[in-house]
Amino acid sequence: MSIHVRHAESTAVITIDRPHKLNALDYTTIDELSAWLDDATTDDAIRSIILTGSGDRAFSAGADISCLAQSIETGTTHALQEIVARGQGLTRRIEQFPKPIIAAVNGLAYGGGCEIVEAAHLAVAADHATFAKPEIALGFPPPFGGSQRLPRHIGRKRALEMILTGDAVDARRAYEMGLVNHVVPATELLAAALELAVRIERHAPTAVHACLAAVTRGINLSIDEGLAVEAAWFATTVPTAGVRRGLDGFLGRRAVTVE
């Protein structure tokens, strides 16, 4: 197995376990991650997911170049199917996942590794982490969705500087640009990611799912289309137990305060 999964109560911690390859994403690893996410979608015992890398050097160095080279050698059709469809499928799965996925970036996040961070709903980085888009040095643009998500996260000009130069940025700069939510000492990384998960999990899962879907699906639409998406997801929560508990709790606290 190229991934390792452990459970911290209702949070699943997934570790990309290829430290000898700086946790590079070969096809087996991508397929295992995708399959595990498919299974976790309907597992009610899992409320949130933390995704990290093995060791302290790398979150993920990106796509395994030996795999890419073999696919490219066989021609465009194979390369599109084996590289682009597979990589975009994984990052789309992460982005659209109905439960929060938090990237815990424990080292370098290059290429496909950076694209996973972009697709994740939230990200916490160790203070020694670095981020880069080095695909241009191989002669092609980011193929796992990075040419589209990164500009949406950090702005066109900052994204283009990373994509066109291939130069790395450190964790503090990634935070300033909005690529990660928090930067913490490496020894506190998983604890910080778990604490963030707990803060989310205190809310009703139906509300969390609706919030994730409304933002993810609406962010690239016009404001009017986005507002329609927001209204539709609000409507799904109206009859839920989460709304009833939330309103009853608020009104009960208010009554006590008034008295």
Rank of each mutant, 00 (worst) to 15 (best):
Q88M: 15
G146Y: 03
D38C: 11
P205C: 09
T206C: 15
A123E: 09
G53C: 05
A171S: 09
V117Q: 09
T52Y: 04
Q88P: 05
K157S: 13
G178K: 10
I49C: 03
M162A: 14
A228R: 06
L138M: 10
P98H: 09
V256K: 06
D167T: 10
A63V: 07
M162F: 10
L108R: 00
L68V: 14
I200Y: 07
A171H: 02
D43S: 10
L164F: 07
I101Y: 04
L68R: 06
A104K: 05
P239D: 05
M162T: 09
G249P: 07
I3E: 12
K21H: 10
T236N: 01
L212F: 07
Q70C: 10
V258I: 14
L51T: 03
E32I: 00
A120N: 08
L160W: 08
A40L: 07
R156I: 05
P143T: 12
A63I: 08
H78W: 07
V215S: 07
A35D: 11
T74P: 00
V256C: 04
H209E: 11
N106D: 02
R156C: 01
R158M: 04
I16H: 10
V238A: 13
E82M: 13
P98A: 05
Y27D: 14
D26V: 05
K99F: 02
P142M: 09
L33C: 01
R254W: 06
K133C: 13
G166M: 04
I14Q: 02
F131V: 10
H7P: 05
L160G: 02
L194I: 01
D39S: 14
L37F: 02
S54C: 15
R18I: 01
I3L: 15
T236Q: 13
A132L: 12
R173H: 15
V184Q: 00
A69L: 14
R93C: 06
